[in-house]
Structure formats: structure tokens, C-alpha cells
Design a protein around this nucleic acid. Structure first.
Length: 468
RNA sequence: GGCGCGGUAGCCAAGCGGUAAGGCAGGGGUCUGCAAAACCUCGAAUCACCGGUUCGAAUCCGGUCCGCGCCUCCA
């Protein structure tokens, strides 16, 4: 059927057509590095990783750009409170961010531009907008984008600028804006900014938030590119403003497909520090969960669906992954003899591969894809229960799982688990005892192994050893 | 107030006009020295509720209730 995405811009599912198949340009809104990422942020990054991996799986080349916002109000404020330079302050969270990506097995983007390294490009963009009459400078040294000048403003979010609720969180008197909906492209230096400022044609100051993504996407992906993603909350104003800036300045389409990911709630409630249900990845690791368990949970719900993150869900993930691990282990056991692949097996595998792919093609329907995976696990287990299967089938099935894992990124197929000699010796001793019908000794050896973190299971073809 | 999303078994979650995938948990069974794993099997008589459209609706339309999001820098 081909790849389909739900495009926020048109509010419907559309077939994906890349500008160039060899390299899909993708801009994914990245972290503001003033704190550790929380699981809500990470859900978005996992979603973007799934998107990236699915595109690759379908044969596209990728050029993904993810910005690191290392200057904004909060970042400046927090760094001053911490008494460190903006650079040192953000560096620790940049490092933490990449650690989190690794823990969740999120593939690296091709480029991670930092806002503070691209201020000159942002200034250029603002200058262009001023020249073209889309932006105006005020007496206090700020520059604003004039919504009134840009006819199509609101086309992404559907907001009617004339009906924007005034005053909710804006201090009217703070800025000399022509219209409340106008947004800052350049913010004049204030005392609270400390030593954080850059020179500009409008005096010292720093770029507005929205302009960074327009300038950096243009720098690394060109004026028009394929996909732009982010959280639902970015639709307005952030992405709306990006469209306005970019299309006004470049006089061409900015982005072809906008994909937005829904938020998550925790144990049925909105995640918030005051409710005590606010978690970073570190919190979950400290509680004994692994990165892949967290990845499984964050990935398992369709990205446009609100995800209910629960500790029960993490437990469930552990069990589900264990089921797959056991299946992989079973496939990896040496088959005594070569048994040809039957048509039944071949058909089963091909059907699974086909169904897995078409599920993902349908706007990344991961839940359906995972269902296909488990269908395959059950069918192949059934086949193995009923007949001896040979190496060819095992290899073919493992290859299929490897292919699935290119997208899922959390199956353990080729990680070699070395069984310590000591444990191996216990297994042999236990086998000896079992042969002599000395089950008391056999069971006590099993307990001994368990104490060392190893499980032994008896199968028709001999003992199977796996870590606890 | 404006705009938008969602409510499916004990829990998580697909399905979005043709009679309810999958995972976890639970009951029963097969296998096993015992286990474990695996397989088989049982389980939704309100798919939030009320109307409507249709031969047929969890799926479409209208209303109600509940949860959630955005409305100036929050994924």
C-alpha cells in the first residue's frame, strides 16, 4: 500500500512522497537543555526514532536534524541560579540527553545543531524578514514578526488570530508589539540576561525561540524539506510561527509533512511534579527498569494516541520482552539435523513480514506491528512444539526478527550471553544427578544456580540456561 | 470562553461500516521426575451513556457525561 502519514497540516492521512528518495529531510524538535529530559519528552524522541527507523526500513535515506536549544529564558535563569556559565550549564544536560538516547537505543540524528552556534544565521533570517516587511523593530531593540503581514498565518493550528485570548499569560505592557499575536524574532538584552547576549543590527540581545528552528532547518535541510515533527503542544505557536517565518522569508513551502505526537499521562493523571508522578529516565533506571523496557512502553501506543504510562505497564513490558527473549533463545539452539523448510513455515514467515511492514506503513501502526510479531512467535512455537525444525528455518526466522528489530530497536537477538564456566559446571553436575534420578541433588543445584542469577529449564533436547 | 483529541475485557492496547488483533494478569488442561518454557483452552451478552442514519455501527451523525491537550516560548 505504500507509506502513509497523518499530516497535521491537512488533517488527514496522506501517501508519503519524498522530495528525493535518496535522502528524506526530517527536522525533529529537540530538547531545551536546562534540565534532564522527562519521559514525556522521551516519548517524542522514541516516536521520532520509530519514524526514522521505519523510513530506513522502507529503503529511504535519511537526513535528520534535531536542534539543541541551549539559550532561552529558562535556561538563562537556571544557569544563573546555578552560578555557572550558560555553556557549562547546558553542557551537562546535553551530555545527559545523549546518554538517555543511548539508554533507549534511539538512533543518532545526522546533525544536532546548537542554537548558540547559529545566531548569525538567525540574525540573517530576521534581517530578511525586516527587509521584506514581515517584521518590525521596536524602540526597545526587539524585533517582532507581524502576523498581519502573513496571510496564511494559522493554517497549521487553525487558530484565528483575531480570537486569541488576550492576556492569559502575556504581560501586555511588557512589549511594544503592534498586535498581541505578533511574536519575538529578536529579544533585546535585559539585565536578567546577564552576560548572555549577541550583537545585532538592533543592538545587543538574543534570538527568539521560534526563529532558531527556521534558521537551522534552512541551514541543514534547505528551504523546503519533507518532514517536521514535535509534540502536539508545539503546533501552536511554535510550528505555526516557524511556518510564518520560513515561508515569508523564502517565499516557498516550508515543510511537506507535519507529524505531531500526543502527550502521555502517568497512572491516569497528568504528569506533574506536584502530583509526584513526574519521572525522568534516571528515575526509572533507579527503580530497576531497563532502557528497553521503557522504550517498549513509550513505543507501544500509537504516537497520536494519549499514552497512559504506568508501572504495571513496565512490568507487562518486562514479561512481554521475556517471551520474545525465550523465543529467540529457543531458535538459537542447535538443531541436530537439517530439516527442510516447509511451505507452511515459509508462508507463515512471509505473511508476518508482509503484515509487519504494512502495519508500519499505515501511519506507524506499531501496536498492530507488535501484534504481528507475537502472532509469529506463537505460530513458530507451535510448529516447534509439533515437529523438529532445522537450521534453515531457525536462521530464516531469526533473520526476520532482526529485520523487525531494525524498527523496534529492543529485541535482543545477537547479544552473546556468555555462560560462566562455574555455571556450566553446575549444569553438567545437575544433568548427571538427573540421569541417576537423584532429584534432590538436581534441585539443590538448580537453587544454587538461581542464587547466582541463572535459570535452567529442561527441554527434550537438553538443558536451556538463561540469565534471570 | 475558543480550537482539538480520547473513553474498547482486571490492566495496557489495535480495529474506525460487515459482526471484537495482540501483550500482561487470571481459571482449566497438555508436556515435565518436579519445575520452567511452550502449546491448547476459558473469559468483552452496555466497545462511556442516550438518540439517529443504515440490511448491518465499537466504527458515521447529533446530544450528554467523564478524561486530556493547546490558546506566547511546555514533548
Amino acid at each position: 500500500m505504500g507509506l502513509y502519514f497523518y499530516n497535521s497540516l491537512t488533517r488527514q492521512s496522506e501517501p508519503f512522497r519524498a522530495i528525493e528518495d535518496s535522502e528524506v529531510g526530517m527536522y525533529t524538535c529537540g530538547p531545551t537543555v536546562y534540565d534532564f529530559a522527562h519521559i514525556g519528552n522521551l516519548r517524542a524522541y522514541v516516536f521520532e526514532d520509530l519514524l526514522r527507523r521505519t523510513l530506513k526500513y522502507r529503503g529511504y535515506g535519511i537526513r535528520q536534524v534535531m536542534n539543541l536549544t541551549d539559550v532561552d529564558d529558562k535556561t538563562i535563569c537556571n544557569s544563573m541560579q546555578a552560578g555557572t556559565s550558560l555553556r557549562d550549564f547546558t553542557q551537562q544536560y546535553k551530555d545527559a540527553f545523549f546518554q538517555d538516547l543511548d539508554t533507549l537505543n534511539i538512533e543518532r540524528a545526522e546533525v544536532y545543531p546548537e542554537a548558540t552556534e547559529h545566531v548569525s544565521q538567525m540574525i540573517e533570517l530576521v534581517e530578511t524578514l525586516v527587509e521584506k516587511g514581515y517584521a518590525y523593530a521596536t524602540d526597545d531593540g526587539c524585533v517582532y514578526f507581524s502576523i498581519a503581514q502573513y496571510q496564511e498565518y494559522g493554517k497549521l493550528s487553525g487558530v484565528d488570530t483575531s480570537e486569541l485570548q488576550h492576556g492569559a499569560r502575556v504581560k501586555h505592557d511588557e512589549y511594544a508589539k503592534e498586535s498581541v499575536a505578533d511574536f519575538a524574532l529578536w529579544k533585546a538584552w535585559e539585565k536578567s540576561d546577564g552576560d548572555v547576549w549577541w550583537n545585532s543590527p538592533w543592538g545587543p540581545g538574543r534570538p527568539g525561540w521560534h526563529v532558531e528552528c527556521s534558521a537551522m532547518s534552512m541551514e541543514y535541510l534547505g528551504k523546503t524539506f519533507d518532514i517536521h515533527t514535535g509534540g502536539m503542544d508545539n503546533v501552536f505557536p511554535h510550528h505555526e510561527d516557524e511556518i510564518a517565518q520560513s515561508e515569508a522569508a523564502n517565499e516557498c513551502r516550508f515543510v511537506n509533512y507535519w507529524l505531531h505526537c500526543s502527550h502521555l499521562i502517568v497512572e491516569g493523571k497528568k504528569m506533574s511534579k506536584s502530583l509526584g508522578n513526574f519521572y525522568t529516565l534516571r528515575d526509572l533506571l533507579a527503580a530497576g527498569y531497563s532502557g528497553r523496557e521503557v522504550r517498549w512502553v513509550l513505543m507501544g501506543t500509537h504516537y497520536r494516541q494519549q499514552l497512559n504510562f504506568t508501572f504495571q505497564g513496565l512490568q507487562d513490558a518486562r514479561s512481554a520482552l521475556q517471551r520474545i527473549d525465550d523465543f529467540v533463545l529457543r531458535l538459537q539452539e542447535n538443531a541436530a539435523e537439517e530439516v527442510a523448510m516447509t511451505d507452511e513455515v515459509k508462508a507463515e514467515i512471509e505473511r508476518a513480514e508482509q503484515a509487519f511492514c504494512s502495519a508500519l506503513e499505515d501511519d506507524l501502526n506499531i501496536s498492530r506491528a507488535i501484534g504481528v510479531l507475537f502472532d509469529l512467535v506463537r505460530e513458530m512455537n507451535r510448529i516447534m512444539d509439533n515437529a523438529e525444525i532445522g537450521q534453515a528455518v531457525r536462521k530464516r526466522t531469526l533473520d526476520t526478527l532482526r529485520t523487525f528489530d531494525k524498527v523496534l530497536g529492543c529485541l535482543h537477538i545477537d547479544g552473546e550471553q556468555q555462560i560462566p564456566q562455574e555455571v556450566q559446571r553446575l549444569v553438567e553436575e545437575r544433568q548427571e544427578a538427573r540421569k541417576n534420578k537423584d532429584f534432590q541433588t538436581a534441585d539443590s543445584i538448580r537453587d544454587q544456580m538461581a542464587a547466582q542469577g541463572w535459570i535452567v529449564e529442561d527441554t527434550p533436547s537438553g538443558p536451556r540456561v538463561k540469565p534471570q
